[in-house]
Each structure stands twice: as C-alpha cells, then as structure tokens.
Deep mutational scan, measured.
Amino acid sequence: MEVRTIKVFTTVDNINLHTQVVDMSMTYGQQFGPTYLDGADVTKIKPHNSHEGKTFYVLPNDDTLRVEAFEYYHTTDPSFLGRYMSALNHTKKWKYPQVNGLTSIKWADNNCYLATALLTLQQIELKFNPPALQDAYYRARAGEAANFCALILAYCNKTVGELGDVRETMSYLFQHANLDSCKRVLNVVCKTCGQQQTTLKGVEAVMYMGTLSYEQFKKGVQIPCTCGKQATKYLVQQESPFVMMSAPPAQYELKHGTFTCASEYTGNYQCGHYKHITSKETLYCIDGALLTKSSEYKGPITDVFYKENSYTTTIK
C-alpha cells in the first residue's frame, strides 16, 4: 500500500517557510505537534488534498525554529505562539472599519479597549522592536488589523473576551517599542525636605499616572512627601515624541487643539466601556464603527496623549 502524501510549508514567522512532505494517514499533531492554519487549530486533523502548498504555523520545537521565533517575536515564552494563534482565530472574524481616516474595530468580545489602543497607536510616533509587531502594525494602518490585535493580546497575556485596560495595554506595548531616546527629568520640591531631581528613561519617561493635564504637570502637581507634608512635583525636561497622561476616570474637559487623542471610560472596574476622542479640525468621538463630532467635550476621561518633541522648564 502506497503512502499518500502532500507537500506543505511549516513556519513560526510566515517569513521562513520549511518544506514538509506530510503523510495523509496521520494527523498534523502526530507529525508536527500543535499546528495552526489561519489561526485555526488543526492539530487533530489529517492532511487533505486542499492543504497542498498551504502554510501551517507550528510551535518552535527545534533550534532553527526557536531562533526564527525569537528573532521575529522577541520572546522565548513557549506558550506565546499558541496564544497568538488562538487569538487570531477570533480577531480574523472582527470587522476593521476605516473611521475618520483611522483603522478602528467594530465592537465584539469586549474589544473596546483594543480599538482605543489601536486608534491611539496610529496617532503617536512609535516604532516597535519585534519585527512581528512592526509588520502587523503597518498592515493594521492599511486596514488589516487582525494579526496586530492578536499579537497585542498575546504580548499582554490576554484572551479574547476578557476586559482590558488601555493604560495597561499601552504599557505592555511600550515595553516592546523603541523608547531608548526618551528621557524625563522631574523635580520634587518640599518646604521641609528641599528639592530632589529624578531622571527617568524609556517607558517611565512617557507615562504618568495622577493627572490628565500635561500643562498642569509642567506647572506642578501636589504629591505627598515622605515627611508627610505636601510637596510639588513638576516637569523639568521632556525628550520624547509623545507623552501619555493618565488618571482614574473623572469628568474632564478636553479643549480642541490642546491634545492629540484621549480615552474615555464609562462604567466601573468590573464592567465598563471605552471610547476614543481625537482632536482634528474639530473633536471626534470614535466608538467602534461609530463616529460623532463636537466642538467641545466633557466626560469621564482616563488617558490623554500629547505630541511632544523637546521641553525644558522655565521655572527657576
């Protein structure tokens, strides 16, 4: 009895394709271990004539594949690729409408935090270190965002349907971005203890939790000093293409032309909904596939993004 075979390709990165001759009487799992086709788990399936010449994702289970996976995804987590594939199996079914010149995501599976993050990423200057993220990001900007969303979920250790947080998501993504040249110098002034300067680099240099107003941050924000008295913390120097200011959701007025974009969060910790506000020729609110415009805006804002380049204080 002759062994019926077909020729397929296996890959971990969709760049390096490895030619395989597979036995049609055995499952993919018996031949390769966990195997995925377009995100779908085909591990328990036997090869079919229609699979001839198709590319299958496999887990990096030998040295060659491990090197290829690390170079593309910059992670050695053995569960990463499987999590990416199972997320992709959902995100490829989502709709990605162009809204006001940006790629958004039609609401499904509690994905409003991903839509808000995706919209924000198209408006701030950011370059990702893992080629996987950078490639998928370019495709997302062009309207094909399924891979990018699935990668975000995998890097953030999230599953489809789980509630997510924009600030946490951005923080994970910033860790995989090139923020080497970003720098922030802060000064804390206390009447009792004097003053202390701190220099922050990388992710810490672009994120701040405690106030939404970048102007206020430049002037000074009140913080408790270690001595128990009130101290003032203010920005001395900022070198970065953008800054992200966050605070627990509270009524906040966004003035046209003073910011790049913002995240609105309605609801409580267990259950809520994100919308995205962007400042173009007027203010726009993007909620999944829905767009509304207004000249002014007041609502429960939790993150505001500002364009920056270089700032030095005039406070002496």
Rank of each mutant, 00 (worst) to 15 (best):
M245P: 06
H18L: 05
T278V: 13
Y84L: 06
G257Y: 11
K106D: 14
W94H: 01
H90N: 08
F80G: 06
V67H: 14
A289T: 11
G39T: 13
C182I: 05
Q20M: 11
C149S: 04
L179W: 07
H18F: 10
N110F: 06
H90S: 12
N89V: 13
T312E: 07
T314K: 15
Q230I: 13
S86T: 08
D13L: 00
C285V: 14
G164N: 01
Y137S: 05
T198G: 03
Q195I: 12
C149M: 10
S50A: 11
F70P: 02
F80Y: 06
I286Y: 06
M26I: 13
Q175R: 12
C271Q: 10
T55Y: 08
G299M: 02
Y57G: 04
S181Q: 15
C285A: 07
K158C: 00
M26Q: 14
A87H: 07
M209P: 04
N61D: 13
V206K: 03
V243A: 03
T27N: 12
K307G: 06
T76D: 13
T169C: 12
N89P: 07
L17F: 15
Y172F: 09
N61E: 05
V243T: 02
Q251N: 11
H176L: 13
E296V: 14
D23M: 11
K93G: 08
Q195G: 07
Q270T: 15
T169A: 07
M245V: 04
H74F: 00
Q197I: 10
T116L: 09
D180E: 13
L133W: 02
C112S: 05
L17T: 11
M85Y: 12
L88R: 04
E308P: 10
L163E: 14
I124V: 04
L186G: 01
Q20Y: 09
N89E: 15
Y311M: 09
A262G: 03
A132L: 05
I301C: 00
L133E: 02
N147Q: 10
R139G: 06
M245T: 05
E52M: 10
H276I: 07
T313G: 06
P131A: 03
S104A: 10
L118G: 00
M207V: 07
T103N: 05
A205Y: 01
G228F: 01
Q30W: 14
L133G: 05
D165H: 06
T232Y: 08
L212E: 02
T278E: 09
Y306N: 02
E2P: 11
R139D: 11
T116Q: 08
C285Y: 01
